[in-house]
Design a protein around this nucleic acid. Structure first.
Lengths: 194, 194
DNA sequence: TCAGTCATATGACCCAGATCATATCTGAAT
DNA sequence: ATTCAGATATGATCTGGGTCATATGACTGA
């Protein structure tokens, strides 16, 4: 609903790719052909340093766009490897640039999408910077991050699922959260209204 | 040099603000007037949750843009408070939107800037997700993050400076880094050429 | 229906990194 | 010159969260 920005592009602009583990979508220094969106599975972006070791730049999962910056550069700056098979959309760079130049609203929407991503990554960084597991979990729940599974939630905020479960239970015991079902937790309203 | 994108805007579009601690630049729900750039000092973006506690969304320091998304929305979604006094540029939303609609290159440059920011935040998130202090420090040095002080570097990668210094020393002892000066460290080339 | 897989949940143990303390060096301000 | 603040650096101690183990519930597919 919010970001089927690219589904407005002509059908020819989007190519569906079924991926298997270890498939390579593009490699560093290859000319850019477009950006991608993960529908199912996981794509890991990696770069090899001058010294030779591998840096993971990003792991894109369901719903995530990646290689957005490729639209504005000539070469990919990293490798894209499928670490979990699934489906990936390839969105044509040419079609995107064409539409960006001709459709003001599309351009503004794309900018807004990128700006919102910047926002949300900054926020996630702040959350992961919270040292205490309890406070981090509370902040993340407050932010509405616990929408699917606890395990997924835990990895998102850089905690083990064990530490996460423990923090959730403690927060419940403290009365700061309530468990509303298996794997479901909610904020407790502070009764500070007059 | 790279992002004086906004210095091309007419002089009237940029307003210089001298800030003191606890100054408020904008508040949640106020109508948006523009984005900002920190020149000196620190600006913290905060939001109050339904339950009443405060979430820190971002802490912008020297060189950082913030509130980019305000250009595409009607109201600020958080408070901006100066936690360290200094200087801040206010960049007019109207002037920005005007230029975006009239200057294709400006629009593309702004999108590219946002896309690069998304990239770098994703990468920083991956780095902070590395559990071992040594590996995290090595990755961050490889990425060129140790450009100013070690203390600044340490906070960026979510480590205490003590843990950071220890990791740097161990990496030097292991021969994976060399110290080239007080607070200066470099990667060691792996001699694996034929 | 039953095995197999994955999420949920919690307890025990241990270690890596936070915390605290200390010392030196550097640069800026007075 | 001298003080002071802050960065650099390292050592000692302690604790919170990682790791490992275990158990159960929920769903899936044979």
């Amino acid at each position: 609903m919010t970001d089927d920005l690219f589904s407005n592009l002509p059908d020819t602009a989007i190519r569906l790719i079924s991926t298997s583990t270890d498939d390579v979508l593009f490699r560093q220094a290859e000319p850019t052909t477009g950006l991608y969106r993960v529908q199912r599975g996981c794509v890991t972006l990696r770069r090899t340093t001058v010294v030779g070791d591998t840096l993971t730049l990003h792991r894109a999962t369901s719903g995530d766009l990646f290689a957005e910056a490729s639209v504005f550069s000539d070469q990919y700056h990293c490798d894209a490897i499928c670490t979990v098979g699934g489906d990936v959309q390839h969105i044509s760079k040419m079609a995107t640039l064409d539409r960006l130049s001709k459709d003001q609203n599309f351009a503004l929407a794309f900018m807004a999408l990128l700006a919102r991503q910047v926002q949300s990554y900054r926020f996630l960084l702040e959350i992961t910077a919270i040292k205490s597991a309890e406070e981090r979990v509370l902040a993340a729940v407050s932010a509405g991050y616990l929408d699917s599974s606890v395990t997924e939630f835990a990895t998102r905020i850089h905690l083990t699922h064990e530490a996460c479960y423990r923090a959730l239970r403690t927060l419940c015991n403290q009365g700061r959260l309530t468990q509303v079902g298996r794997g479901q937790y909610q904020l407790v309203d502070q009764p500070d209204r007059p």
